[in-house]
């Protein structure tokens, strides 16, 4: 009996173009499984962004529009509202990196949450700008070395990183906000449940749902995939705690 198979919502014959050991693949697989389990593949419209997350449409068998850098939540708002104006309730989600969601697009992200826009945003937080070769981003941890913070992130030059899931949780229109990681099986299961919950909350029309996925970037961190997961487990989860920060249905 087959107990594991490729999620149906992943395109046949497609191969992820991410680097070896990159958590983007894991995250996309989870999103695809959730789409399968909720049986929403035919009703879902995905919004891709700029950065490593851009090729979403090459991997997922759902309708997809690319958005300009940072504007995914605004584009998703347009998609969702336009369908609603025709009495079609579609499931709309964005798949963005932390640079896209929390730096260049922070305005669009926060305001979508404040409006309680009934969409889901998935944000891959790998603490740097991965596509361009690992520069300092909004989520780069204090002391972390990147190509534009050669002596480590410091207060004097760079200031502090953003705790995205915590900020989104503060918005009244947010129905669900959580941070998850993918460094072991237990966390992968948990991440999938959280992503599922986010989509379910959208289905129920509860408002903005958000999952920040603490992810590895082995290439730019210059660590092996395994050591990258160790770094997340031992260091980054101390900076970015794994937690549900807001859940309107559970206190």
């Amino acid at each position: 009996m087959q107990v594991y198979a490729k999620p149906k919502s992943i395109k046949e014959n497609s191969s992820f173009t991410f680097c070896s050991g990159c958590d983007h693949g894991l995250a996309l697989k989870l999103v695809a499984s959730v789409i399968d389990e909720l049986d929403i593949q035919q009703d879902t419209i995905a919004v891709a962004s700029s950065g490593c997350s851009v090729f979403l449409y090459n991997f997922l068998e759902v309708d997809c529009i690319e958005s300009p850098h940072g504007r995914a939540c605004a584009v998703a708002t347009g998609v969702k509202r336009a369908h609603k104006a025709r009495n079609n309730d579609k499931i709309v989600f964005t798949y963005q990196g932390d640079g896209d969601f929390a730096s260049i697009g922070l305005g669009e992200s926060i305001h979508s949450a404040l409006r309680g826009e009934n969409i889901t945003a998935i944000c891959i937080n790998n603490t740097n700008y991965g596509m361009t070769g690992g520069q300092l981003g909004p989520t780069t941890a204090m002391g972390q070395i990147t190509t534009t913070s050669p002596t480590g992130r410091n207060r004097e030059y760079h200031g502090f990183p953003i705790k995205t899931a915590e900020h989104i949780a503060l918005c009244e229109g947010t129905a669900f906000s959580a941070r998850v990681a993918l460094y072991d099986i237990k966390n992968i299961y948990n991440a999938k449940n959280m992503i599922k919950k986010a989509f379910e909350y959208q289905k129920k029309g509860l408002g903005f749902s958000f999952v920040e996925i603490l992810s590895s970037c082995p290439t730019n961190w210059k660590l092996s995939p395994s050591d990258s997961h160790k770094k997340i487990k031992e260091e980054l989860t101390k900076v970015y705690p794994l937690k549900v920060f807001k859940d309107v249905l559970n206190g």
Binding site: I65, S67, R71, T77, G78, R81, A82, E108
Partner: peptide
């Protein structure tokens, strides 16, 4: 939508137009 900026407004229009 009373957008938060013109940038958001035109991008909402982009998304809506795709439908």
């Amino acid at each position: 939508v009373c957008a938060e900026s013109e940038i958001a407004a035109i991008n909402m229009a982009l998304g809506a137009a795709s439908t």
